[in-house]
Amino acid sequence: MKHLKIDNLHVSIGDREILRGLSLDLPTGQVHAIMGPNGSGKSTLAKVIAGHPDYTVTSGDILFDGESILVMEPDARARQGIFLAFQYPSEIPGVTIANFLRAALQARLPEGEELEATEYYAKLYEKMDLLEMPRNFTSRAVNEGFSGGEKKRCEILQMAMLQPTFALLDETDSGLDIDALKIVSHGVNSLRGPETGMLVITHYQRLLNYIVPDFVHVMINGRIVESGTKELALKLEAEGYDWATEPEAEAVGA
């Protein structure tokens, strides 16, 4: 079992502090959900773990199996096994999905070793079938002119191909209709297993009906204020975030 451990993490962008002492332990084999209102810092957490250069870690640590990854470049973290399914994936004009994924897999091989093309395509087609993607999808440029649903499916396809140790899913349900949500969730669930830990970030409980988490954390103002099992998500659905916001306001006032 491996652990992704967030230890009392403080993060700023410019002068503004967004994460204020956040701690979390995500072991492989578990799915944790993070829920919270807009602006609570959920997406920041995902990007900071992935190493986005806009954010500054002012204190605390992120440990991958006991080793700090804070000094590592984003690409080194990715090759170590951290995957971020983006809320807003970037377009890469002119670069096909097949070529992009091939480059990403090639980057994980030792120098001088070449990716085996036949095996690669066999795996790619298998994962595309899983996500109900037509074959001609591979020759489209990454995210260029994609619908919201296609973008999210493409993110999960990449996750399936790269087989990360820890996957961070940032608002993967946003912009999806119910059919697309089912397909994407099916894809994510098929990747669950003892070798993978997942952090599912969402604003709504809806996604958690399909990707059932082992634990749910409520995030308010850059901190986890409540943790529990999946029933906590249902409570949030019924009562909103207000009950959780109150103690936070006191804490800030104190």
């Binding site: 190493g51 004009p93 002119g94 670069v95 070529n99 992009f100 994980r108 790269l162």
Partner: peptide
């Protein structure tokens, strides 16, 4: 765009190179 590609494991130079090749592809 570069961060997105780096997140998939490409170095900054590889990401840049792939983008440029895509541009003239």
């Amino acid at each position: 765009q570069i961060f997105y590609m780096q997140q998939r494991g490409l170095t900054e130079a590889q990401a840049m190179s792939l983008s440029v090749n895509g541009f003239v592809n």
